[in-house]
Design a binder for these strands. Sequence first.
DNA 1: ATGTAC
Length: 371
Amino acid sequence: MNIHHWTGADRRFRVFASPASWIEGASVAQLRLLAGRRGFLSAAAMADLHPGHKGPVGCAIETEGVIHPDLVGTDIGCGMALFALDIEQRQLHIDKAFKALHGLHEAVDAGDRAHQAAIAPDYAPGMGTVGGGNHFVELQVLDDRADEAACDAHGLRRGALFLLVHTGSRSLGPEVLERHGVGERGLDLQSPEGIAYLADHDRAVAFAAANRKLLAETAASLVRGNARLITDQPHNFVEPRPGGRVLHRKGAAPADRGLSPLPGSRGAQSHLLLPEAGPGEALASLPHGAGRKRDRAGMSDRAKDGDRPPRANPLGNRIICADRRMAAEEAPDAYKNIARVLADVEEAGLARSIARFRPIVTFKTAEARGR
DNA sequence: ATGTAC
């Protein structure tokens, strides 16, 4: 194991990344600031670590009985869900699929939306919507099976189509954070305030998972197929742990709930991870993707020099993104190399890839907005 | 991240 501890001798912090991985200094600085948080015990960062608005993204943070809602952030329950389609790549008419997927939001059934949003009816308009930022619905093909037996066990066939869905709880998450917002002091796990936050948090987590399911089912119907859930893993959430501890995950997927998607950028392959025992210092966590290499503002500025964001890319997938600013901010070169992130995961013994997926069509947004 | 802050 050749894992670089960027945080030096302070054993409360671990960064599971090799020296070959680009880790921005600002994100490590944000990580170290967590030591001042009430109840702080330790933090585990992954190779996708990057700076966020209020704190580092790509890490797990454990406290002694204190919930810090601001560390989970606004998009409570945001995560990645992978669904298998009952369609082979060779059966797919790519042009038809590309055209049909433009209508993803319009195709969501009103009754299904209301049903899935029953847990938070006031937020029903957001149910079955992708949202902005790095969210997407992506049609993929399984193009390599590193572990054939594991793939067989889950019915993952080479050449079959899949849907990878990345979205969250839409406007519900921000509302929950604001309502329980407590600055940096946090909430005691056992207090009425802590219990109340957890209840609303859990609703947002469920809402987000329902959103991913509804989007996958709708996208599947647009390509004349049916979606079967392989795995759904949140990466922005908090959970009580044995011994009165609280584990926060901010851009980190759980390593103790089975298979976990590891998406690359929208111009790269994705993987499906099978978690391994791993060291306890990793706080039962995995990276949630490639992680940003360049911030959004920088990417947006670069695009103002007249370059149209590319609709295609080296892997040949087509991207539905009518919002040019979003396309610039989310361009593949804003992200780290997923192969490098995966190598660090495997080297650290956190997980291994059992399958690799190539993007075919990516849905971001069909509405033009930014310039 | 967010029916996009001032």
